[in-house]
C-alpha cells in the first residue's frame, strides 16, 4: 500500500475515532458492534490466560516473600519453605473457604437475584479502573448491574460480551455512587479519583459526619440497591474554601485483591 493512501485512511480513522469519543450515536453504535465482535475473541483467551494466575499468585505470595530467609540458611530455608508452603496452602484454603462461605451466605440471602463470577483480568491502562469477570451476556449479565462482594460495593457492569464483562470499579474517575452515612441523615455522592481513596462530594461543612463513619448506598442513583456498604470515612477537611467539606473515603473492597464477585441481577 502506498504511504499516502495509508496516511489518508489513518486520517479518516482518526476523525472517526474522535466522533466515536464524542458519543455521536451513529458512529458510537457502529463502533460498539465492531468492539463487541473483537471482544468475543478476547474473552476466551483472557479466561485461558487467567488460569495460571492462581498458581503465580501462590508462588508470588509464598515463595518470593521468603527470599530473605534463603540467605540465612539454605537447609533451614528448605525446611522452612516446605513448611511455609504447606502452611500457606492451609491458610489460603482457609481464606478461600471463608470467602466462598460469605459469598454463599450473601447469595442465599438473595436467591435468584445474584450470580457469582470470577475475576479474570484488569484494566491494561492505569488511567482507568476496571476488572474483567468471566460471566457475560449468556449468563444474564446486563449493563449497569451492580457488582458486590460480601464486604461491599465493587462497581457496575459497563460492557457486556458473550462470555465476559467489564466492571467499572468505584475507584474509576467516571464512577459516582449516591450514598448515605450509616445511622445519620447525611447524604452525598461518592466519586472515584483513580487512586486508592474516593471523594465524598456535596457534604456541607456543618453536616453531621465523623472519621470512621460508614457509608451505605442510598438506592437513589437507580443503579445500586439501598443499604450496600461502600466505604469508611478516613479524613475530613472543613478548612477549605466553599460550603462543602473535603472528605476522603477508603472503600471496603481492594479491587486489586478480588477473586470472586457477585452480580446483582435486576428484573
Amino acid at each position: 500500500m502506498k504511504k499516502t493512501v495509508v496516511i489518508i485512511i489513518a486520517g479518516i480513522i482518526l476523525v472517526l475515532s474522535f466522533l466515536v469519543f464524542t458519543n455521536i450515536p451513529l458512529f458510537f453504535k457502529g463502533y460498539s458492534k465492531v468492539k463487541t465482535g473483537v471482544g468475543e475473541v478476547a474473552g476466551p483467551a483472557l479466561k485461558l490466560m487467567s488460569k495460571p494466575t492462581q498458581l503465580v499468585r501462590y508462588i508470588f505470595d509464598s515463595y518470593i516473600n521468603l527470599v530473605g530467609v534463603k540467605k540465612e540458611n539454605f537447609e533451614l530455608k528448605k525446611k522452612l519453605d516446605t513448611l511455609q508452603i504447606e502452611n500457606q496452602k492451609i491458610v489460603e484454603l482457609d481464606k478461600e473457604n471463608k470467602r466462598l462461605k460469605s459469598v454463599l451466605n450473601l447469595m442465599e440471602q438473595h436467591p435468584n437475584t445474584m450470580t457469582a463470577a470470577r475475576v479474570i483480568g484488569e484494566d491494561v491502562k492505569n488511567w482507568f479502573k476496571c476488572i474483567i469477570i468471566d460471566k457475560g451476556r449468556d449468563h444474564g449479565i446486563r449493563e449497569k448491574m451492580p457488582v458486590v462482594t460480601p464486604k461491599g460495593v465493587v462497581g457496575q457492569a459497563v460492557e457486556i460480551n458473550k462470555w465476559h464483562s467489564k466492571v467499572m470499579i468505584i475507584n474509576d474517575t467516571n464512577s459516582s455512587v449516591d450514598v448515605y452515612i450509616e445511622g445519620k441523615n447525611t447524604r452525598g455522592v461518592l466519586e472515584g479519583t483513580g487512586q486508592t481513596t474516593l471523594k465524598l462530594k456535596y457534604i456541607l461543612k456543618n453536616d453531621e459526619i465523623a472519621i470512621g463513619d460508614k457509608l451505605i448506598t442510598s438506592g437513589k442513583d437507580s443503579i445500586y440497591p439501598r443499604g450496600l456498604p461502600t466505604g469508611i470515612i478516613i479524613t475530613i477537611n472543613r478548612n477549605k474554601a466553599g460550603i462543602f467539606a473535603d472528605v476522603d473515603v477508603m472503600p471496603f473492597n481492594n479491587y486489586k485483591r478480588l477473586d470472586e464477585v457477585l452480580i446483582i441481577k435486576k428484573k
Binding site: 466515536v20 469519543f21 463502533y31 478476547a42 482507568f128 467489564k166
Partner: peptide, 9 residues
C-alpha cells in the same frame, strides 16, 4: 476492549 477507556480514545 481490555480497558475502561472511553470508546474511540
Amino acid at each position: 476492549i481490555l480497558s475502561n477507556a472511553p470508546p474511540g480514545s
